[in-house]
């Protein structure tokens, strides 16, 4: 469907754009919740992002896909939420999380069970079904690990920026990211790369 640029659009066409932006709400909510792990904070971030998108519509100019543009706005609003909540309540670091390597290795440091080859060509890793399993696995990460991991992988912050935002030491952040990656690997092994798909 061809829709004219918002800046030169008629009121009817403007209404079409608003409809398209509003239709993104479930996706935005899903992403905000994945990062913030708190429904009220996520609703605040999504509402602010939608409002900013609607206000920015005349300047949007159809330079990018609507979803790309609105998700970009949401990332800023989610980061604002993280900063605001960080001021209100210090996030604990995740150093008390269980170490996933405890059961991966024997006492002598060798694998308890050799890792399985994942027969996953690039095309498979981009299938919607796989991406939804991957997202479900990220959703299962414990709150603190999940929040830090998504700051790295979705908001694309460097570890130094994460340290600055959350007041953690680099060692803490690296440890949390490592544990999150190991848990993600374990979850994908269980939910996607199990025997039936290998």
């Amino acid at each position: 469907m061809s829709v004219p640029e918002p800046s030169s659009a008629s009121p009817e066409q403007q209404a079409q754009w608003l409809e398209r932006i509003e239709a993104l709400r479930p996706t935005l909510m899903r992403l905000a919740l994945l990062q913030l792990r708190n429904r009220a904070w996520a609703e605040d971030a999504v509402s602010e992002a939608l409002l900013a998108a609607i206000e920015g519509l005349p300047r949007f100019g159809a330079r990018a896909q609507v979803q790309t543009w609105v998700v970009g706005i949401l990332k800023h609003k989610v980061l604002d939420q993280l900063r605001q909540r960080q001021r209100e309540q210090q996030f604990e670091d995740g150093s008390d999380e269980e170490d996933p390597t405890e059961h991966m290795f024997l006492a002598d440091g060798h694998f308890a069970q050799a890792p399985q080859v994942w027969n996953a060509p690039s095309e498979v890793l981009r299938q919607k079904q796989f991406l939804e399993v991957l997202e479900a696995c990220m959703d299962l990460l414990p709150g603190k690990l999940g929040r830090v991991f998504l700051m790295r992988e979705w908001l694309e912050l460097g570890t130094d920026e994460i340290c600055q935002e959350l007041g953690f030491t680099p060692t803490n952040v690296w440890q949390m990211l490592s544990r999150a990656r190991l848990r993600l690997r374990e979850c994908l092994q269980l939910r996607w790369f199990g025997e039936s798909r290998s």
Binding site: T27, L31, A64, Q65, V66, Q67, T68, V71, G72, L125, R126, K128, L131, L134, E135, E153, W154, E156
Partner: peptide
């Protein structure tokens, strides 16, 4: 790939 998917691709 997930990031691209969620960013609109």
């Amino acid at each position: 790939a997930w990031r691209n998917y969620r960013d609109g691709a």
